[in-house]
Each structure stands twice: as C-alpha cells, then as structure tokens.
C-alpha cells in the first residue's frame, strides 16, 4: 500500500520544485515571451499546491483569474513589444549592489515574519468546512457573505474605484477621430437614404422573329 500522506508529501515537493524552478526561469530567461510562460507555469503549480491543501476554490480562482485572464493580457502586451535585449542587460553590474541590498532586506523581513509566526506557534485548527459538513467552496461563500460581508463589499468597492480610475486616466477625447454610433446606425430611416421610384412596368416592343429561325436551338 502507498501511504496517502507520504504520496501527498511527494506531490507537494514535486509541485514546489516546479514552482521554484519556473520562478527562477521567469527572471533568468532571455526571451520575454518564454519568461511570461514560465510565470504561467509558476501560477499553475502554485494552484496545484493549494489544491493539495484542499483549498480548491482558491486554486481554481487563481487559474481562472491569473492564468486565464491576467497572464493572457501580459502575453498580449509582451508579444507586441519589440524589446531590445541588449539595452535591458546593460548596467547589470552597476545596479547589482542595489538589487542585492533590496534582496537581503526582503529576506530578513520574511525570516522575521516566519519567526514571529513560529513564536506564537499556534497549530492550525480543524478545517471548518469539514466541521460544517460542507464543501470548501460553499463554506467560503457562506463565511464571506455573513461574517466578512463588510470587508468583502469594501474590497469590491475599492476594485470598482480602481477600474473607474484606470478608464478615466486612459480615456481621452481626441478631436477629429471618427467613430461609429451603433444606435444612430440602427435608427436610420431608410427613406432618408434610398429614394424608391414607383413606375409602371413598360414592356418593350418585341421584334417579330423571322419565321426561318424558329427551329429549336441545339
């Protein structure tokens, strides 16, 4: 028998290794399109790890939102840009110290955070979804729309404001640009465009065919 827990551990390390490898590839690959694809792989294997942790809703939401929509837009932009690789690479040595400082600070912060968590050392409680006898998704929905309704709505409002701001920043009325108004096009009165002329049918006088050509055509 294969122990399910042991198998889950193997899967976790496999997905974790893929995630880390793909994340390193994102910053080391020369081709930007390949780098974006590595980022897609990073998201995908992260979703697999979450799936192992029985967070199925979060996992699928990550795939739908980030892999399915955000990264497609990323690819869209990156494919259209004509990026000069040499120009990006120059100055690598000059900016290296700054990058190293930022990396070290981030590492210390992360370790501190992990340390604080470890000091509190609270074990995870039992899965509330299993206690309620519901699926993870149903429990998350109930919790979001009852206990956390206000923060949830505030988050939605902030996102809406963000969308409106993004549109307002990029929307410019340029003079001289022509555009089609579908409503006007549909509302056009055909009588204003086409003049229908009504006239009696006129039959042109038919010339009498000569009697000799009455034989059927072959």
């Amino acid at each position: 028998m294969i122990d399910p827990n042991f198998f889950q551990l193997i899967c976790f390390y496999a997905f974790g290794a893929i995630t880390v490898g793909a994340a390193i590839a994102v910053i080391s690959l020369r081709n930007t399109v390949h780098a974006v694809l590595s980022l897609v792989l990073t998201f995908f294997s992260t979703a697999c790890i979450w799936m192992l942790a029985e967070a199925e809703f979060l996992a699928v939401a990550l795939i739908v939102v980030y892999v399915g929509a955000v990264m497609v837009l990323f690819l869209f932009v990156v494919m259209m840009l004509d990026i000069d690789q040499v120009k990006i690479r120059e100055g690598f040595v000059r900016f290296l110290p700054v990058g190293l400082v930022v990396a070290v600070v981030m590492l210390v912060e992360m370790l501190a955070l992990i340390g604080v968590r470890a000091m509190h050392a609270q074990t995870l409680g039992v899965n509330p979804a299993t206690v309620a006898g519901q699926s993870n998704t149903a429990w998350l929905g109930t919790a979001l729309y009852t206990h956390y309704l206000l923060p949830f709505e505030v988050a939605a409002l902030i996102l809406t404001v963000g969308v409106v701001a993004a549109v307002a920043l990029t929307l410019r009325q340029r003079s001289g640009s022509k555009r089609q108004m579908a409503a006007e096009q549909v509302a056009v009165d055909p009588r204003a465009r086409v003049r229908l002329v009504k006239m009696d049918a006129v039959r042109p006088p038919v010339a009498e065919p000569p009697a000799a050509s009455e034989e059927p055509k072959a």
Binding site: E56, F57, V60, I63, V64, V67, G68, A69, N136, T137
Partner: peptide
C-alpha cells in the same frame, strides 16, 4: 464539487 469553476478554468486555458 467545484465542477463549474474547474470548467471555467479549463476553457480559459484553451486560449494559450
């Protein structure tokens, strides 16, 4: 249980 979500995820991958 999350069949509809899974399906949305899969169909959104097809564009790649």
């Amino acid at each position: 249980n999350a069949g509809v979500l899974y399906l949305l995820g899969m169909t959104s991958l097809g564009v790649y």
